[in-house]
Structure formats: C-alpha cells, structure tokens
C-alpha cells in the first residue's frame, strides 16, 4: 500500500474501518489543486517546515521539555549511528531515509492549562496555508486531549506532516519534513510499545 493510500485511509476515519466510529473525527478535506495557467510563473515548491514559535516562556514553566531539531545533516549523522541489526534502530533508519527534517517541541507541566490557546494558534495558523491538509482531528472528552494531524500534499505526494497534541498537562508539536511513509511508522508500532493501529487493513 502506498503511503498516500494510508493517509487517505487515516483520513477516512469517518467511514467504516478498524479505527471505529467517526463521531469526534473530522473528515479529510481533499486538497484542491488549481489548474496551472499557461505562461504563469511556476510557484516555488511549498516547504513543509513550520516556523515553530519561540516557546521559551513555556519551557520555563514546564517540568519537562523536549526540543528536538534534526536537520538533514543531523539526520544523516544519526543514520550513521543507527544499528541496522537492531530491530528498533532498523525501523527508525527506514523511516528517516526519506526525511529532510524532524522538529519536535514538547512541554509537560505539573498543573493543568499552563499554556495558552495562542501558543497553539501560532502553529495552526501556518497550517491553514495552501498545501496543508488536516488529516485527523480528535478531541477526547475523557482525557481532554486534542490531536490534530496535518499533511502537506504536493502532486498527491506527502512531503510533510505536522502533529499538534494539546493535553491538559502536555503540549506537543511535531513537524516532519520529507516523504514520511506511515506504513513505515506502522512498523515501529509495537516495537516502541505502541499498539498496532491496524490502519492498512480496510478489509477487516
């Protein structure tokens, strides 16, 4: 299964599949692509890298903060130190092969609501720009956790992913630049303690 089909499967969570009922899941909006105008200048390829806001104020309030910036050179360096004989490393190696960057900011707090909506908006505003498509939006009443997953599509090819998870005591932004194959991420599941999402088995 191609990555894009996996994305669409993920996006079609509203329809019958292994993920279950669609009540709290936003349907995927297919990207609209305008027909090219002859003679018009070719627009530059959109960049899936987000300008992550300066959240140093949050970092000061957080009991634990993670700030990961892996540019192409860092990814290349990391790949030299990932052991292909180790299953977890091999899966990670496979995932990062087509990537040009991984950027993560995650803050954990000792009390609820330590971050503001404007912190989230600073990121989501960028995701309303052309190219980005919201794939999944989940809101849990039980855990009060909201997760939004976006992908950037160019010519029906995913060239980036953004994930914003806002929980009462944790705020996480993940921005992956490059062609990420969720099937590969799927391989990592279970190995890293995450259960199988069963996303590529529509027949079940």
């Amino acid at each position: 299964m191609t990555p894009i089909r996996t994305y669409l499967l993920l996006g079609m969570l509203g329809s019958a599949n292994a993920w279950g009922a669609p009540a709290q899941v936003a349907p995927v909006q297919p990207p609209t692509q305008a027909a090219p105008v002859p003679g018009a200048p070719v627009p530059a390829a959109p960049d899936a890298r987000l300008a992550l806001p300066d959240l140093s104020a949050l970092a000061q309030k957080a009991s634990q903060s993670v700030n990961i910036t892996l540019d192409p050179s860092m990814l290349a360096m990391a790949s030299r130190f990932l052991d292909s004989d180790d299953p977890q490393d091999a899966a990670a190696l496979e995932i990062i092969k087509g990537l040009r960057g991984i950027y993560v900011k995650s803050y954990t707090f000792d009390q609820d609501n330590a971050y503001r909506q404007s912190d989230i908006d600073a990121v989501t505003n960028q995701l309303s720009s052309p190219g980005w498509t919201r794939l999944v939006q989940t809101k849990s009443r039980k855990t009060r956790a909201n997760v939004d997953i976006y992908i950037m599509l160019v010519d029906n090819r995913a060239i980036g992913m953004a994930l914003i998870a806002s929980e009462p005591r944790q705020f996480t932004i993940v921005n992956i630049v490059g062609s990420i194959d969720l099937n590969k991420l799927h391989k990592l599941e279970g190995r890293l303690g995450v259960p199988n999402l069963d996303i590529d088995s529509p027949a079940k």
């Binding site: 990961i68 990670a92 993560v104 989940t138 997760v147 998870a165 599941e189």
Partner: peptide
C-alpha cells in the same frame, strides 16, 4: 533524538487512536 522524536510521534498518534 531521532528515537525520542519517533517515540513522541508514535505516542501522539496512539493518543489519536
């Protein structure tokens, strides 16, 4: 950092799941 970033991504995907 790669392993941690993928862990976090997995964790949040699981949260959505």
């Amino acid at each position: 950092q790669v392993i941690e970033a993928l862990h976090l991504t997995d964790e949040k995907l699981d949260l959505a799941y």
